[in-house]
Write a protein that binds this DNA or RNA. Structure first.
Lengths: 308, 308
DNA sequence: CGAATTCTCTGACTATAGTCAGAGAATGGA
DNA sequence: TCCATTCTCTGACTATAGTCAGAGAATTCG
């Protein structure tokens, strides 16, 4: 694997963590312990349920309880019982707490300004552009794909997004009732599988398989959130779907699609799918594709694996 | 100031610290406390003086002493008296310590690999390129310029680099003895000033002023380390020199230079210097420049100040 | 030579950032 | 209705990452 690339990433990590990290401490000014500051920030102007704070920050319930008491003692936050469910508490910020949060916000801005300030206009623009690029690609690298239950709220959300997008892009709109169904019960083992691609817990794409004993497997419901497009998420999702289908014993994976979905069609072609005659009567489809899943495609823990 | 740029930098900081930070902890595996791991790394294969470790890591002497004892108990390091000066101790790694350090190195590589692994070749190359760019520009932004004593080892080193570079680039080489002198005693207040540009303590450039009561100030000994070129360090150094000359009462700043120094000449022209007739008999000079230092050029704490 | 300085170590102390095991109150489901 | 679950809090405990004030040995400076 490319040793130079690895060295560059390590160098980048050093520069960013030491450089920005040191600045961060100087600007965010460790006047307040980090835990309190994070909590103060996370409560936000609207307030939040204590249990939500706990899960968002990944902290122990006892610890959050004590941090909140400390914020209360400093008259920065209030904690009250939720009238709806009297087990849960809601935290919100006092005027002083809001001011303190605004101050944190201001300091974070100052930090960014302090980085830009010494640079010329030209270099500033270059830095912001390069940062945008690094951030996008890091996010791409942090996307994980996993089989999930198609009935969870996240899964339903993805499927709704999928339908809404088709409705928006198809010339005649999209009514799931007129299309060949792929209901939840068909997308759980052993009949099929439902995959969600997530970026830090948030769903950014989905895809599903319908498995048929000896007949080709079918690829359904593939969708990538607009914000995650162009990052290779579709390619990775497709690879996972193919791997799953292969491991489930399918020799061929096939799919139908609409001519409005140009990026998807390009992805399928790029990934080795060949256009074939219509193999079903899906009313929204214009193209039918299939791909033979090679059996000997070993899954090695090597980087070369994902090379295009 | 550009609010979008600031938002982008904040977003970048979040993604990088949360994304890479989380990975960092997972890979570097908090099996060993961070303090010990840093020290183990810093001792290095060659060993190091304890006082050097202290200053490099910026740690308290008592703390380092205890950390070292802990490493000794784990048979990872040895501490011995320096035979030359029996007050100082040297630490070095045992075989086990070296193995542990190699393991840290391996894990840092794995972290980098883990970031690259999910990406396509195309996206990998783009990420590495963008990281290189961010790192370069962040470094540019971390350069600081300050007046320093021209007799310190760092100052001498800069001046040697300066001479060596001229000797290398001038057609006929460069012999300081034949050039108009600018000795250390001329480069301290009130006769003049010597500036060093530093990136994290390491010198990456220098420049000097000779001040003459009512005559124009002279710019001398300007040099930028090859690794720091193209980052705007020269421009910032020049701005500092001009500011200092202006504040010392000079109305005009002038300089002579050799035609081999094309980037320097371009910088001077870009910065408002006008070519004038020879005002001295410097044997190595081909061009003479001067710039009128405007008095009313207020130094505002605004970003616009450094715009080109 | 004697005084000041340098380098390291020890003891005593602190703050931060947690973890874990209950306990009590409120709620939801059978 | 009652049992399990959810939500929060308290007390007791831990590890990490330091800081500070000497003290003792070695060295350097005037």
């Amino acid at each position: 694997m490319d040793a130079l690339a690895i060295q560059q990433i390590r160098q980048f990590n050093r520069t960013v963590t030491e450089g920005i990290g040191a600045l961060h401490d100087r600007f965010l000014g460790r006047a307040r312990p980090l835990g309190e500051a994070r909590l103060l920030w996370e409560i936000g102007p609207e307030g939040a349920e204590v249990r939500a704070l706990r899960s968002r920050l990944g902290l122990d319930s006892g610890y959050v309880s004590r941090l909140l008491r400390s914020l209360q003692r400093q008259r920065l936050a209030r904690v009250r019982v939720d009238p709806g469910d009297r087990r849960v508490r809601r935290a919100d910020l006092t005027r002083a707490g809001l001011a303190e949060r605004a101050e944190l916000d201001r300091r974070a801005n100052d930090l960014a300004l302090h980085i830009l300030e010494p640079l010329s206009e030209h270099h500033r623009a270059a830095l912001v552009a390069a940062m945008t690029e690094v951030e996008r690609l890091l996010q791409a690298s942090m996307v994980h794909v996993a089989v999930e239950d198609p009935t969870t709220p996240d899964a339903r959300w993805c499927l709704e997004q999928y339908s809404a997008e088709l409705d928006d892009r198809f010339d005649a709109g999209f009514d799931p009732a007129l299309s060949i169904p792929a209901d939840a019960h068909e997308l759980v083992p052993p009949a099929g599988a439902f995959f969600i691609a997530r970026l830090r817990e948030r769903p950014v794409g989905c895809g599903a398989l319908k498995l048929h004993r000896d007949a080709p497997a079918e690829l359904k419901r593939m969708w990538i959130a607009p914000a995650a497009r162009g990052l290779g998420v579709g390619r990775r999702l497709l690879q996972e779907l193919e791997r799953h289908a292969r491991e489930a014993g399918a020799a061929v994976l096939r799919l139908e699609t609409n001519h409005a979905l140009t990026e998807a069609i390009a992805l399928y072609r790029r990934s080795g799918y060949l256009e074939v005659d219509a193999f079903n009567d899906e009313p929204y489809a214009h193209h039918w594709f299939e791909k033979r899943l090679s059996r000997n495609h070993r899954r090695r823990r090597s980087v070369a694996r994902t090379a295009e």
